[in-house]
Write a protein that binds this DNA or RNA. Structure first.
Lengths: 241, 241
DNA sequence: ACAAAAGTGTTTAACCTACACCCATGT
DNA sequence: ACATGGGTGTAGGTTAAACACTTTTGT
């Protein structure tokens, strides 16, 4: 094993795709229209690729692991107390993924912010709906696509939706979250039953007051866990018994 | 963003858990007994942790990405032409995961070798059944456990078994592979039906000759793909239609 | 004939989707 | 009363686990 060969300078960076389900115009904010899945991006003020939009992130320090680094970098862009979930995704290590030197190896993360949070953002930072991404820096567009795919997959077999939801919510709110994040329609009834069977949801017993045009008051629910849990481990080939 | 802060020396290494389903004693080799899932390890001849067993791997070079690096490091331990699959897993970045300096960040990989291959190994290298792992170096035991879990999960919803199987095989051979890799019994009949429905398997039309005690000759099968494919994407919450 | 190994068919159960119908509230 | 939104019941389909039964071969 040749381990001590000389090498040029290499930076290891954490990049996080932070998602939130958000409303994107006045009509929607008033309660009409559908919310959309959005990703947090900041616009580069300097070369290279000035003007393009980047994922929050930056270089790993000597005394922190990658998760701690991702959290620290995010703190510059968004109130990290609002961050309800953070998990590691893939590593991007192509020597030419960004112009160098230094070479930059990116460990990517998926971050989630609940529907109700509306954190302060710096001047250069904005939420972008994933359906209308701006010109992205380097390979950051690929990272966002990958993170979206992982999120959608995990919505199907884990309780990861807790990261996108408020503490308490009605089933129709939860439906909107799932529809926005998955990109297709979900039946409220079945969503409720699937999540209840898997013991992901728990009714609070309380109800929300109905909207301005009346309607039956909605029962409110909570997620039983606030940590990621696999809820439907085996699609097939279950262990016997 | 503080990107150019000074930092100590850091090595980025690739570590690969290479798995194979193997027979582990003479009786088993003769056709009796059950094969087991094994992982490729080499024994450290030098400090630190001399005598403990390590995953193959080593430092990333400037001109290669992590996958290329994993392949290159593996070439020192095993004939890489036998390697039927290689994919990235998680990154281990705790600053104290190995005694340093230099600090070592490990990107881990899952590698697979087919049942029939029996590559030459160097003196210090050996296959170990995962049920009886020796004293492992650093955090390598955790890496092996994690890789095993991922392999078992992917056997359920992807065609990843192609990496553990010979080019052509009978259903009972495939059953042994699944049993060894999953750690529990699988019904041959149902395995056949599940994989056929998903179009993962294709009958070759040929048959194997029966064993020394007779028996009906087994039909032979192939995997339709030799690349990883997700075959059962949605455990629930499928798109409408 | 008999044992061994492979393949087929059937029963049962779980789970999910779709959709029709019923309930609670405000105007 | 009726419009609006929430909740319940149910029928039908798909998947797969379990296991009994049949087929093909060698001795």
């Amino acid at each position: 094993m040749i381990e001590n060969m000389p090498h040029g300078s290499t930076v290891h960076e954490a990049l996080t795709a932070v998602f939130q389900v958000r409303h994107f115009n006045a009509a929607a904010a008033a309660g009409n229209g559908h919310p959309e899945l959005a990703v947090l991006l900041w616009q580069r003020a300097l070369e290279p690729q000035r003007g393009t939009w980047s994922l929050p992130g930056g270089a790993l320090r000597d005394d922190e692991d990658l998760t701690a680094s991702a959290r620290r970098q995010l703190a510059e862009k968004v109130d990290v107390r609002k961050l309800s979930h953070l998990e590691q995704l893939s590593v991007f290590s192509d020597p030419n993924r960004v112009p160098g030197p230094p070479r930059r190896i990116a460990s990517t993360f998926l971050g989630l912010v609940p529907l109700t949070a509306d954190p302060q953002l710096p001047e250069d930072t904005r939420w972008h709906p994933v359906s209308r991404l701006p010109q992205m820096s380097f390979d950051h567009g690929i990272v966002v696509d990958y993170a979206r795919t992982r999120l959608a997959a995990k919505l199907s077999y884990t309780n990861i939706a807790f990261g996108l939801s408020p503490a308490e919510f009605s089933m129709s709110t939860l439906r909107e979250i799932y529809c926005a994040a998955l990109g297709y329609d979900v039946d409220t009834t079945n969503l409720q039953r699937v999540l209840t069977r898997r013991k992901v949801l728990r009714p609070t017993g309380t109800t929300a007051s109905p909207g301005p045009y009346g309607g039956r008051p909605a029962a409110l629910y909570r997620f039983t866990d606030t940590e990621l849990r696999v809820t439907d481990e085996f699609a097939a080939l279950r262990p016997p018994g």
